[in-house]
Nucleic acid binder design. Structure first.
Length: 333
DNA sequence: TATATTGACTTGTTAGTCCG
DNA sequence: CGGACTAACAAGTCAATATA
């Protein structure tokens, strides 16, 4: 039984590697991403640190913005994981806030009717906008879109990971670019359980990229696949397969010519370890279908390893909590 | 009856194009 | 170059329909 399951996981690794081998365009493209983002990193950091992140709004940066951030950077502001505005800034502190394209959903989901187009971040209107979300109580408005529930949980987990003290899960940090949350793209699609597809520039994104460990050789890069429900039709076994596919991509990326540049962007100093050990984990609310069977299973890729983990969480007062034994990912309180 | 399959629809991300 | 826009597609929701 155990062996059958392991071979199923290994075939995900194999299939993913095959797709990546048959389609090599990603190599040059991801090398160019890394180069451009690294070039812009100082600038991104300086702009990011020039303004305050007003809770509960959270700042995000996608790859497109990161690599085109030459003289100005466009950040996303998300509330409960959903984008509500763009904030573009230069070093001159004349940051501009726009709600273009988000007005309909802002009103529908949060009752926010404050349209802004290039409003001064330090002006009255922008303050009103930030104040609205700060004072807003309760969850999303009725007519919930399930998709956004996943983003809300993703945001809660990132918040938990970025805590400095009283962390529910110790020794875990989300990977950021220039201290900004960013969604890592991949060139493969793995959401369909039956097949791994090569999708070039339109691949799926990694839900959460994080590091665990206490530093030095103990540090591991983790690829987390998050589901907002614990249900029979999408059990942990399928979620972990998605995580394995993305982890396989990260492994190939780190072993490509641009590997060192990405390793640095992911926040690790020094050389890529030999062997490289990556964690792949399924993350979902604790429930009936919790699956503990693949705990710490190793999948070999040549000299490297993907180690499987799980994290089944609970939620209390808008915070993630974890019952003892429900994660192998890191130390729990 | 319970489960699978299908397609329309929603949302997010990227690349590319055009303009000032 | 930045900004506005579009096309394309992943991934997910949801409900109607088909099938065992």
């Amino acid at each position: 039984m155990e062996e059958i399951r392991k071979s199923e996981f290994l075939s995900v690794v194999e299939e993913t590697r095959l797709r990546l081998k048959d389609n090599s365009e990603w190599r040059a493209r991801y090398a160019s991403y890394a180069e451009k983002i690294s070039d812009n990193l100082c600038f991104i950091k300086s702009v990011r640190s020039s303004f305050h992140e007003w809770s509960p709004l959270k700042v995000y940066l996608n790859v497109t913005s990161a690599k085109t951030a030459k003289n100005s950077v466009s950040f996303e502001l998300r509330y409960m994981g959903q984008t509500v505005a763009n904030l573009s800034g230069k070093t001159d502190k004349l940051h501009k806030l726009s709600t273009n394209n988000y007005e309909t959903t802002n009103l529908r989901d949060f009752g926010c009717n404050i349209p802004l187009s290039g409003a001064n971040w330090y002006g009255e209107d922008a303050a009103k906008f930030r104040g609205f979300f700060k004072n807003r109580k309760g969850n999303r408005n009725i007519g919930d879109h399930k998709k956004n529930e996943e983003h809300r949980l993703e945001s809660l987990l990132l918040t938990e990971f970025s805590r400095i003290k009283n962390k529910t899960i110790r020794h875990i940090k989300s990977v950021t670019i220039g201290r900004v949350r960013f969604p890592m793209p991949t060139p493969i699609s793995a959401s369909n359980h039956k097949a791994i597809k090569y999708s070039g520039t339109n691949g799926g994104g990694i839900d959460i990229l994080a590091r665990t460990g206490t530093g030095g050789k103990a540090t591991r890069l983790c690829i987390l696949e998050l589901k907002d429900e614990n249900i029979k039709s999408e059990p942990p076994k399928e979620a972990i397969k998605q995580a394995i596919a993305y982890a396989t991509f990260i492994r190939e990326l780190l072993r490509s010519d641009a590997g060192a540049a990405w390793w640095k962007l992911f926040g690790s100093g020094g050389k890529i370890p030999e062997p490289l050990e990556l964690y792949a984990a399924c993350v979902m609310p604790s429930g009936l279908y919790n699956d503990y069977s693949f705990s710490n299973m190793d999948l070999d890729i040549e000299r490297d390893i993907i180690k499987l983990h799980y994290l089944y969480f609970n939620e209390e007062n808008n915070r993630i909590t974890i019952k003892s034994g429900n994660t192998t990912l890191a130390v729990t309180e």
